[in-house]
Nucleic acid binder design. Sequence first.
DNA 1: CTTGTTCTTCAAAGCGCTTTGAATAATTCT
DNA 2: AGAATTATTCAAAGCGCTTTGAAGAACAAG
Lengths: 340, 340
Amino acid sequence: MNLKQLSDRLGLSQTTVSRALNGYPEVSEATRERVLKAAQQTGYKPNKAAQRLATGKAKSIGLVMQSAPEIGGDPHFSEFLSGLAEEAVKHDFHFVMAPASPDDEVNAIKRLIASGYVDAIFLAHVVDPDPRVDLLRSSSIPYLLHGRIMGDVHDYPYLDVDNEGAFYTAAKLLLQLGHKRFALMNGMERFTFAMRRKIGLEKALAEAGLTLPSDLVHHSVMSDQAGFRAMERFLARPERPTAVLCASTALALGAVRAINKAGLKLGTDISLIAHDDVLSTLRPENFSVPLTTTRSSLKAAGARIGQRLIETLEGSSDLPDQELWEAELIVRASTGPAPA
Amino acid sequence: MNLKQLSDRLGLSQTTVSRALNGYPEVSEATRERVLKAAQQTGYKPNKAAQRLATGKAKSIGLVMQSAPEIGGDPHFSEFLSGLAEEAVKHDFHFVMAPASPDDEVNAIKRLIASGYVDAIFLAHVVDPDPRVDLLRSSSIPYLLHGRIMGDVHDYPYLDVDNEGAFYTAAKLLLQLGHKRFALMNGMERFTFAMRRKIGLEKALAEAGLTLPSDLVHHSVMSDQAGFRAMERFLARPERPTAVLCASTALALGAVRAINKAGLKLGTDISLIAHDDVLSTLRPENFSVPLTTTRSSLKAAGARIGQRLIETLEGSSDLPDQELWEAELIVRASTGPAPA
DNA sequence: CTTGTTCTTCAAAGCGCTTTGAATAATTCT
DNA sequence: AGAATTATTCAAAGCGCTTTGAAGAACAAG
């Protein structure tokens, strides 16, 4: 059933039917009702491709999804997506996900823009320098970043968590507790969120006259296995660290397992603070020793980004173009005074 | 840059340019090269909405994503998606994800079909009865299920894991080890994969003259917290179970924590077998006591589904319409003889 | 009973692409 | 050389929708 068939059936022109359906005023209430009813009965749904072609709008948000054989599902990604979806469903938006190998992302974005399939682009996993950001900056499609590039010039719309501040504050707490030997279990080095977390930690250490030895810095994907292995390596050091900052609760999960396995007591022998993205399947308060965390909900970020993108597209946005969310430091049992 | 502009620029007709770009034979090699080069230089990318409108094809797979405030990211979902994406990227396919509240999924699928945005539909989380399956059955769009409805009539294309067989085999092993008191930690009751796992377990028990008391059956989302709580409840029973079947390693993670907390020894005091979807972030072999599992890779399933769907659309499919994958039973240290 | 307004409705153009059917140019065959 | 093929290229129609510009119907005003 298409518009022509529907209008033939009603003995009306496509114009009138289209207008009736889209709520334009120049159509009598009587016909509007008749049209609406017929559409209902026949189950008529407009063809989005045609709509998109005619209007240039499609109520859709595009995103590129990194794909490679060695990349598995990322719980952080799906948590974020669920937030985005929650907002999208309210406004009848959908997503177009273009999978791309990591070295082909720029092209994937280009295709996405040119495809005429999406009204806006969302971008995450910001690196620095980030050619994808340059591309979006110079194109005319609305877009929004989750994260920022490095430096202080932010002439692009973003939503980011104050990662530097989060880890700075976390480190401060551990310093106050008397810790001197720190380790960092971070996300992939190329991501700016990881860079900023490291900077935050180093800044706090520098203020205390301390430094972070490079072999006590670990970069990897944020999974429990990676955390387990990294912690084992940390603990194998002659002078093992007493304070560990961890970029995700997923990493922390593995780290804690390694700590237990080594017969050490979390919160006593070793203190740990993890960044908590509020993954719905991994809550820090449910760890055997509840985790002290810096918290910022990834799902909430997703929802907010959806909201901002959609409002921009509907032309009603009075939301800020740049947002920096502070993470909350929530103290639980995994932090304690440095062992004597 | 659109086709008209590109062809004007080249002094050719749109027809010729289009044909050159799409590899049709009726265009001279010289012009083809000229066109290809110009397309390259100008960065011309065809408008997919227009392409879709003209051809009825769009190289895109549609899927509905459940969305509700209380639903968070599901690592199983993203693991699956990464498999699907891996296959899609090879063939330049993309996804259209329509978020929908759980009670509006049928409508979301209808919209997706009518939208003209997708060439095929993928469906997961099969329930029974499943109105979505009925809808797809009666529509003419290609589709593929991950999972099956109940009963033996499967006149629709699917890929499923033999969940019944997996849990049957797992239970058999535990029975051989002398276990008599079983518990089941399952996914949501409404999903057919959960139903079948329960049936598999009950069948094995029945053959041994045993039954599964209803208070030793737990249904919930498959997260570690849920596993933790469920196991605590199991252990609080006067006669606690000695053998537990667990629908996911995520559940097992929590379950193991509860077991440790209770001072019990996994593999000795209590045996546990989990179904392993091969989540890239949670490997059973990395548990402090490596987990005995029934294994079937969710990512591989995603890739296979992508492959089948794409081959169907490209009209070259000689792949089977129905597939039932057996899960492997991999014995590790979390299973042992029943305590005396 | 005109004329001027407002309300409804419509025909047709256009969005960017593919594809059919026809025309033109280049080759090959008598 | 002229006819018959074959290789290239093109104009135009069509995919399903929105939107502009115009026309017809209904009504109030002069």
